[in-house]
């Protein structure tokens, strides 16, 4: 932050939206500050006006409306982790438990993660598996976008300068379902080398897949759905062999890079391993057995 920048802490949504529309060219939204402060300190970002939305209570509400869950953008990871509404969503809970350290989870928000749009964020693959929608608001309009469309390029969210993320919504899964998130990081609480989320819906006899969703972190420009794995499993019988074989297909959908967290070859290997493990855990949680 430079000496001429100003910092606003509005208490209600309208004031925030007003400020945003007034300063749309130069304003930056601050939620938990866990990503933006790093960018500022490293000189990757500068801004004249900061609008801190963490005091707007409307933005940190969690509610169930007509079978869908609404999570306010300023909800912290910790409050989401502790909320009763979220307990049935094991795929989300798994990821909430392994994001960074408690100190960061106490401040970092779900809207901040979606706004930041880093492909390594742990929270995004589970939300993709839940077919989440992002609700975006400006002074004059509100729109809902599927999360899969919201992040289309590296570190870019589909947001206009006068818009903020209001909330994220997703439907409660129906039928016999289970989910899981598996992650490998260099140290506990570290960024994922690879993260894989799986959400399954099983047939009545708990022996076949009615639906499968697989999404991965840290293996491309954005979090990625693995349609190859999903397609090969949907409709098939549950067996360890089919899971093992299908998990290998994950390499068709990902595009990992060599970087400090590991080589592309290792990440591809991990993606298959974690895909298999996430599927097994999801099936077990759905009551299926292998």
């Amino acid at each position: 932050m430079n000496s001429s920048s100003s910092y606003h802490l509005p208490c209600d949504l309208t004031s925030a939206l007003n400020l945003l529309s007034e300063h749309s060219d130069s304003a930056k939204i601050v939620a938990g500050g866990q990503s933006i402060m790093l960018l500022l300190r490293q000189g990757f970002l500068s801004s004249d006006i900061f609008i801190d939305i963490s005091d707007i209570s409307e933005l940190s509400e969690i509610s169930i409306q007509g079978g869908a869950i609404h999570v306010g953008a300023a909800t912290t990871y910790t409050s989401l982790e502790n909320s009763l509404e979220i307990q049935p969503y094991s795929v989300l809970l798994d990821s909430l438990h392994v994001i960074a350290d408690p100190q960061i989870r106490n401040l970092g928000t779900i809207g901040g993660a979606l706004g930041h749009a880093d492909p390594s964020l742990d929270i995004v693959p589970p939300l993709l598996c839940l077919d989440a929608n992002v609700v975006v608001q400006s002074l004059n309009a509100t729109r809902a976008i599927p999360l899969s469309d919201f992040h289309q390029e590296y570190m870019t969210a589909d947001l206009s300068k006068d818009e903020l993320i209001h909330s994220i919504t997703f439907n409660q899964p129906t039928g016999i379902h289970g989910g899981a998130y598996e992650k490998v990081a260099n140290v506990e609480g570290g960024w994922p080398t690879v993260g894989v989320a799986a959400q399954v819906k099983l047939g009545e006899n708990i022996d076949s897949f009615l639906d499968v969703k697989i999404a991965l972190a840290a293996v491309g420009d954005t979090a990625i759905r693995s349609y190859s794995v999903e397609k090969s499993l949907i409709g098939s019988e549950i067996s360890m062999d089919s899971i093992r074989e299908s998990s290998k297909l994950v390499c068709n959908d990902i595009d990992p890079l060599d970087d400090l967290s590991g080589s592309a070859g290792y990440k591809t290997h991990l993606a298959g391993v974690l895909c298999q493990r996430a599927l097994v855990k999801a099936i077990n949680r759905a009551g299926g057995s292998l």
Binding site: N186, G190, L260
Partner: peptide
């Protein structure tokens, strides 16, 4: 197991605590 200042022809690749791993009680 975990830590190393990595150099690419003398240029440090991880000169910060985000990229250089230090362990905690977990490890």
């Amino acid at each position: 197991l975990r830590s190393e200042v990595k150099l690419d022809r003398g240029i440090p690749l991880n000169p910060n605590l985000a990229d250089y791993s230090v362990i905690s009680a977990w490890e």
